[in-house]
Write a protein that binds this DNA or RNA. Structure first.
Lengths: 114, 114
DNA sequence: TCACTATATAATTATTTACTTATATATTGC
DNA sequence: GCAATATATAAGTAAATAATTATATAGTGA
């Protein structure tokens, strides 16, 4: 296995963000699928500002990146982040959250919105 | 690599604890060396109650265990914890904190106290 | 038993965090 | 340009967190 090291302080900063279930689930989802904000609002059944604020924290650390596509802003994992290998190793150990996206597709929410 | 999975919710709970630099460093130290509370107080240059409270949180999740040896109570990583493999993979990626213990030895604090 | 040391716990306080409500900005399609 | 939609941001609030101070408990050695 490759040896990755990250300063303790930086790791703690990342874990602080990962200590919230919503953000951690978001990271797991975004690691496999780009999502727009309104999809995440649907998935987490919470308010749009709450989602935006979570995304901002993740973005401030460079863990995710945004990309505007017309009316929508899509978020995805920033795989160029210096710490992505560290993060990836963690996310790999979490169970897939694909079912959450599948629900959206079944509802038709995914297509209609984004 | 072996495949370990942990529920997202449980992982977030662990990360919440790891989101504090003191606790994360503690975990890294305890993964290799048992320590008594007074050593940790020395290492982190903080109050004894603060250290005790951090240890309690880690213990409440079963991440560390305590063992009385005479006057002192030694803490160590609970390697029997269901999630230890997950935790171990994380701790492996953090830089060694052995220098902190070495400092104590040089000061003589380690021996005199414990 | 008593003084001393190590540790835990309780209560208080200050800080941080996450959410809500309200509002601003940007894009689309008419 | 205007209405509608998507998103961000600001301000306020409630809840959670971490530290401090004070006190309790437990072991040691005289």
């Amino acid at each position: 296995m490759q040896k990755i090291t990250i300063e303790i302080e930086k790791a703690a900063t990342i874990f602080k963000l990962f200590g919230d279930k919503t953000r951690l689930t978001m990271m797991k989802i975004l690691d496999k699928h780009d999502c727009c904000v309104c999809e995440l609002v649907e998935i987490f059944k919470t308010s749009q500002p709450a989602i935006s604020q979570h995304l901002r924290k993740l973005r401030d650390l460079g863990l995710v990146k945004e990309e505007r596509r017309g009316q929508w802003i899509f978020y995805s994992i920033n795989k160029r982040n210096e710490y992505y290998p560290f993060i990836q190793q963690i996310l790999e150990q979490l169970p897939s959250q694909d079912d959450k996206l599948k629900e959206l597709e079944e509802q038709g929410t995914r297509i209609s919105c984004c």
